[in-house]
């Protein structure tokens, strides 16, 4: 799938560059909100919202938008753009990346 890069390069700040390196499919998000509609955890959890907040450079808020996530992967099931949502959530919240960067500390 050929996807337009919606990343607005440079506008995201350092943390987003790190995140993009871990999970490149992040830039595919069109913030349609399908993930939030399918979410099993709560009405407040939204990967689309988290990515939108990231684009504004609000890392802490992005993290808060994922609080309570059950990691079940329903969002990945429905994502029309093939974003690896579980990869985004893990990188943003509880998993260290391969280069040892831990964004949540």
């Amino acid at each position: 799938m050929q996807v337009r890069d919606l990343s607005m390069a440079g506008a995201w700040g350092d943390s987003v560059d790190v995140l993009k390196a871990i999970e490149p499919s992040l830039v595919n998000c069109i913030t349609c909100g399908g993930c939030a509609a399918a979410c099993a955890a709560s009405a407040n959890v939204s990967v689309a919202k988290a990515i939108l907040l990231l684009r504004r450079g609000l890392l802490a808020d992005a993290r808060a938008a994922l609080e309570g996530c059950l990691f079940c992967g329903k969002c990945r099931f429905v994502c029309p753009m093939g974003v690896n949502t579980r990869g985004v959530i893990a990188a943003l919240t509880f998993s260290p990346d391969s280069s040892g960067n831990i964004l949540h500390q």
């Binding site: 955890a41 709560s42 309570g68 998993s95 260290p96 831990i102």
Partner: peptide, 13 residues
């Protein structure tokens, strides 16, 4: 061991 803490909110639904 590698994971940081992650709290799951009570799921109302």
């Amino acid at each position: 061991k590698g994971a940081s803490d992650w709290a799951v909110n009570p799921v109302e639904s």
